[in-house]
């Protein structure tokens, strides 16, 4: 159960679209990859909002667009009642301090030729204009927060293991006292025994620093462990969204059900016959007409091919984009 989730909205995303232009075919026709295609959701303050999806679902693009690391094609991003899409690049810097990202690959996200203290301290210089002594003190304190030691300050990233690097990336993000963190598959590159420790760290930091997370992942088991709210994405659109309980226990979209069925269960006695989505994930350059999941959906009917379903509310806070949602 999400313990006492506050209802105040920190981030509100409305009809967000991000299309990437690509040239394809013999005539180099201009086409668009519809990475994020009309996405609307709200992230309540101090909650963990998980975005889950397979490759090509647009979850990473969504995370980066929300921070304006990629400029959106259209739509609104409202952060604390201010339209984030309309802010000039100059004043964006103030927001950037409050909104940080931790990316998937800790091997490429840290500058290989900078010392850990400089990696973590750079933001302090830019945002807080601290002196080098102050920076050292703050870096030291932050390193301890993420489970590293003072002596690690004077080392280079290559001297650390994957889990430790992800701790450094986390220190770099939280040192600026952010409010909102985008965690983009933060444990996908790590072994499971390390993943457990890093996830625990994210949970602890969230409660001690009152953070809000947009947690991007492909792993539903991790979503279940970490999050309060879940949005399930497929080919650039949110198929189902709600509290974790809604999405996991009152699952309404066939895609969510099939996605959950596909997950291998680490229990040898669990041997039920699986129902798995057939076929491959279609291309987001030329997504299927109507409902984007109809090509793989076992319940698809004629209408699903022709008409795009609306994103409708089926109960309080539980939304689904399906002509025939499964409602008990």
């Amino acid at each position: 159960m999400p313990t006492e989730v506050k209802t105040e909205t920190l981030l509100s995303v409305e009809n967000l679209k991000k299309y990437f232009p690509v040239k394809r075919g013999a005539f180099r026709r201009l086409l668009y990859v519809r990475a994020v295609d009309d996405v609307t959701f709200q992230v309540p303050k101090e909650s963990v909002f998980a975005v889950v999806g397979e490759s090509g679902s647009g979850k990473t693009t969504l995370g980066r667009t929300v921070l304006r690391l990629i400029e959106p094609t259209s739509g609104k991003i409202i952060y604390k009642n201010e339209d984030f899409t309309k802010i000039s690049l100059k004043s964006l810097r103030i927001f950037r301090r409050k909104m940080q990202i931790i990316s998937q690959d800790p091997y490429n996200s840290l500058h290989p030729r900078k010392l850990v203290k400089d990696i973590i301290g750079e933001g302090l210089k830019i945002h807080f204009h601290m002196s080098s002594n102050e920076i050292l003190d703050t870096v030291k304190e932050t390193l301890e927060r993420v489970g590293l030691r003072e002596e690690h300050m004077f080392r280079y990233p290559h001297e650390f293991s994957g889990g430790q690097r992800q701790r450094i990336a986390t220190a770099r993000a939280i040192v600026l006292k952010p409010e909102f963190l985008v965690l983009d598959e933060p444990t996908s590159a790590l072994d499971v025994s390390v993943q457990a420790i890093i996830l625990k760290m994210f949970k602890d930091l969230k409660s001690s620093l009152s953070l809000t997370y947009l947690f991007i992942t492909h792993d539903l088991a991790v979503v279940d462990y970490m999050s309060d709210y879940v949005a399930v994405m497929y080919l650039g659109q949110i198929m189902e969204m709600g509290t974790k309980e809604d999405v996991f226990n009152n699952t309404a979209h066939p895609y969510t059900i099939l996605l959950m069925n596909s997950i291998p269960v680490p229990d040898p006695r669990h041997k039920n016959k699986k129902m798995i989505p057939k076929g491959e994930i279609p291309s987001s350059i030329n997504p299927p007409s109507g409902c984007r999941f109809h090509t793989r959906c076992p319940y698809a009917k004629e209408v699903c091919k022709k008409e795009e379903p609306k994103f409708v509310k089926i109960s309080k806070g539980h939304f689904v984009k399906c002509h025939f949602p499964i409602i008990e």
């Binding site: 499971v192 993943q195 229990d267």
Partner: peptide, 23 residues
């Protein structure tokens, strides 16, 4: 034992426990 405690599972409310130290 440690490995099994670290694996997240859907529908389990238990806290995950990792293995301290590194390979």
């Amino acid at each position: 034992k440690g490995l099994l405690k670290a694996v997240p599972k859907i529908g389990q409310s238990k806290e995950l426990v990792g293995i301290t130290g590194t390979v």
